[in-house]
Every structure is written in structure tokens, then in C-alpha cells.
Lab assay of single mutants.
Amino acid sequence: NITNLCPFDEVFNATRFASVYAWNRKRISNCVADYSVLYNFAPFFAFKCYGVSPTKLNDLCFTNVYADSFVIRGNEVSQIAPGQTGNIADYNYKLPDDFTGCVIAWNSNKLDSKVGGNYNYLYRLFRKSNLKPFERDISTEIYQAGNKPCNGVAGFNCYFPLRSYGFRPTYGVGHQPYRVVVLSFELLHAPATVCGPKKST
């Protein structure tokens, strides 16, 4: 009989979020998941679920829940969905086509923008091939755009693969920082350890 609540607040209220190319993952297990707390949290810009209804989450049990978190621009949030393409979905964070879970995003301009620009948040701009679902690539190898080998030196046709967002408070909404948490639900042939409040007695 599990009684402790799942530590969703640790994920959602973290002081610093990860850059999207180096997205953070927390495994959540052996706890009671009260999703209504999240669902009623006012400032969400997006709360979209795939393969599961957000209002039914509290009735369900899962083997594991993974909480992935990172920061992207407002106009990139739409790429955090199954079957998407674009710089983020291709080179930074890719969801599987059969994704079961929820994508939760909110504007973090007050936290993550600075006058003069916040350059701490990076994304991958160049990559030889697209990421596989949930693949994480933190390499900083110089990207070779031409035929000539770069030998690890940036220059003509040789690019550092990461780019900084440089968030400023005055940017338009599409270019403002958004914090994103992706909850993915794993249902294995194993005992369920993460259940909603109704199922955990």
C-alpha cells in the first residue's frame, strides 16, 4: 500500500531547467500520482495528452512514469508532439509516433530571460542525422557541412553544433522561453508502482 505522493513538484518547480539538447529525465516510481494538482495549476500554456485522457489519469496505474524537462522557445512547443519535424524534434528531443503521455508547457519569461540576454539555454542546430525517439545527444563535436574534414576547428563550413537562445524579456511570445515537462507513461508486464489516488488503496 503506497502512500507517499509522487515528487512532481520537484520537477515542475525546479529552480533551473535543462537546455533542450541535454534534456533532463527523472524516473518516478513507487508513489501516488495526483495529476489533478498539475491539471489545476493555472499558468499552463499547453497540457496535451496522447493515448490517454488527462482527466482519467487519476484512475490509472503505470509501471513507471518518466518526467523529461527542458526549455525551448514558445514557437517550438508545437514540435513536442508525435510525428513532428523541425530543429527541436529532429536534433534535440524526439517523441515516438506511438507516444503515451502528456506534454505540459508554460511561459517562463520572468524566470529564464535576462536584460542583455540569458545565454545559458542551448539547443542543437546541426546534426548529421535525426534523433531516434528519446535519444539524447550531448556531443559538442564540430559539425562538418562541406567535404573538408574540420579536425575539431570551427570555421568555413565547420560549425559548433550548439546555439544559444539568448532570451531577453522584451522578445515577442514566440521567442520567449517556455518550460516543458513531458510525462511518459510506461506500461510493462510488471507490477504497477505509480497509481492515481483512487487506485492506491
Rank of each mutant, 00 (worst) to 15 (best):
I2N: 15
T3S: 12
C6A: 04
C6D: 05
F8G: 03
E10S: 09
V11L: 07
N13K: 05
N13V: 00
R16Q: 13
F17R: 01
A18M: 06
V20G: 03
V20T: 04
A22C: 08
A22E: 14
N24W: 00
R25D: 03
K26W: 04
R27V: 14
A33V: 13
A33H: 05
D34N: 09
D34Q: 04
D34R: 03
Y35D: 06
Y35L: 15
S36Y: 04
S36C: 03
V37G: 09
L38P: 03
N40Q: 14
F41R: 09
A42L: 08
F44P: 11
F44Q: 11
F45Y: 15
A46R: 14
F47E: 02
K48E: 09
Y50C: 02
V52T: 08
P54F: 15
T55I: 08
K56H: 11
L57Y: 04
N58L: 05
D59P: 03
C61V: 10
T63Q: 10
Y66D: 05
A67F: 06
D68T: 01
D68M: 01
S69C: 04
F70Q: 02
V71I: 09
I72P: 02
R73D: 08
N75R: 09
V77Y: 02
S78K: 12
I80K: 02
I80F: 01
A81I: 02
Q84E: 09
Q84T: 10
T85E: 08
G86I: 06
G86N: 03
I88K: 02
I88P: 02
A89K: 04
Y91T: 04
Y91V: 05
N92A: 02
Y93V: 02
Y93I: 03
Y93H: 02
K94I: 00
L95N: 00
L95T: 01
P96Q: 01
D98C: 05
F99C: 00
C102E: 00
V103I: 07
I104S: 00
I104E: 00
W106N: 04
N107Q: 05
N107G: 05
L111C: 08
D112W: 00
D112Y: 00
K114T: 11
K114V: 12
V115N: 14
G117H: 09
Y119P: 15
N120D: 14
Y123T: 06
Y123N: 06
Y123W: 06
Y123V: 08
L125I: 14
L125E: 15
F126R: 14
R127T: 03
S129N: 14
K132H: 10
K132C: 07
E135C: 04
E135S: 07
R136N: 05
D137Q: 02
D137W: 00
D137N: 06
I138Y: 08
T140W: 07
T140Y: 08
E141K: 11
I142L: 14
A145I: 11
G146N: 08
G146H: 08
P149M: 10
P149I: 11
P149F: 10
P149L: 10
C150T: 06
N151M: 11
V153E: 14
V153T: 14
Y159W: 12
P161S: 07
L162A: 03
R163S: 12
R163W: 06
G166I: 08
T170H: 14
G174V: 08
Q176T: 03
P177N: 03
P177Q: 02
V180A: 01
L183Q: 00
S184T: 15
E186P: 05
L187C: 13
L188M: 13
H189E: 15
A190Q: 14
P191L: 04
A192R: 12
T193Q: 12
V194T: 11
V194A: 10
C195G: 11
G196I: 10
G196S: 11
K198A: 14
S200H: 13
S200D: 13
T201S: 14
